[in-house]
Design a protein around this nucleic acid. Structure first.
Length: 273
DNA sequence: CTCTGTGTTGAC
DNA sequence: TCAACACAGAGG
């Protein structure tokens, strides 16, 4: 069957029914990822085009709809990152989150400056350790998944509804590392073995962090001054000799019906096609 | 198994 | 420089 052509520049149809975004630079194609909608793919192409070709970029949409202030903030954001960083964010669908995060940081700095008889940098965040996991052999390597101990998964992670198919597909969660970089993992429940796992971007994360069996990853719930809550992940190498045998802190469990929020952070249900 | 992203080619 | 198409192999 013939695949449909896209109305948009840099967008190609995929057999799965999704849309791919790609851009060319110096006779080479740069793949920008796959997206559920054609428009999303086109917007991604636009960002990459502005990034790679600077001002003379030919794009699908104009930026006129955005207010000057927002457009300027975004331009600063683009300028303060390398092209590779931006392309990586686009591929991993974390661009908006990263952009919003830096906006929040500026807002906080602004607040601090205005109140500032006592200016205390980095003193404003409320951090709470949710749980940690000792890395096993199955958690690292070529096709690895992070197995989440059932106790912690049931306590802190969203409950899957068996009828909805969410069970199999999982949900995407964004997780911030020590450097403020945002990673996107898929959280899924494998009903066949009743295991709860993180996969998706996990393999790449484990690879880049050079995680090895015996290392530890910690999951934190961090609330900033403006009240935004986000999920953070920290890696600790196995040099530290001893670990407590029980999970230190736990959050009260609350599961809203429809909207899935994890640690106060929005997570996105993956739709079947 | 599904489906992304690469290899490749021909058009513009 | 670009999209169309096939499909290897990455990944769920």
């Amino acid at each position: 069957m013939k695949l449909p052509s896209s109305r948009y520049r840099g967008v190609v149809a995929q057999q799965s029914g999704k849309w791919g975004a790609q851009i060319y630079k110096k006779n080479e194609r740069i793949w920008l990822g796959t997206f559920c909608t054609e428009v999303e793919a086109a917007q991604t192409y636009d960002l990459a085009a502005r990034c790679l070709h600077e001002t003379n970029a030919v794009t699908n949409f104009s930026t006129c709809s955005k207010s000057d202030k927002v457009a300027k903030a975004e331009l600063n954001f683009l300028r303060s990152h390398t092209t590779d960083d931006i392309l990586s964010m686009l591929r991993r669908h974390t661009y908006d989150e990263e952009l919003n995060r830096t906006r929040d940081m500026h807002q906080i700095q602004h607040l601090q400056c205005n109140n500032a008889t006592t200016f205390m940098p980095n003193k404003s965040e409320d951090r709470e350790l949710l749980f940690f996991k000792l890395i096993s052999h199955g958690d690292v390597g070529q096709h690895s998944r992070l197995l989440i101990p059932r106790k912690h998964a049931q306590k802190h992670f969203p409950v899957f509804q068996k009828s909805s198919g969410v069970d199999h597909k999982g949900v995407m969660i964004n997780c911030e590392d020590e450097e403020g970089r945002i990673w996107r993992f898929r959280y899924a429940h494998w009903s066949s073995c009743n295991n709860h796992v993180l996969n998706g971007g996990w393999t790449q994360f484990a690879k880049e962090k050079c995680l090895r069996p015996g290392d530890e990853v910690q999951f934190w719930r961090v609330t900033n001054e403006v009240g935004d809550v986000r999920l953070c992940i920290e890696c600790h190498t196995s040099k530290a000799a001893t670990f407590p045998s029980q999970s230190p802190l736990e959050l009260p469990l609350s599961q809203p019906d429809k909207m899935i929020r994890l640690f106060g952070v929005n997570v996105y249900v993956l739709h079947n096609k």
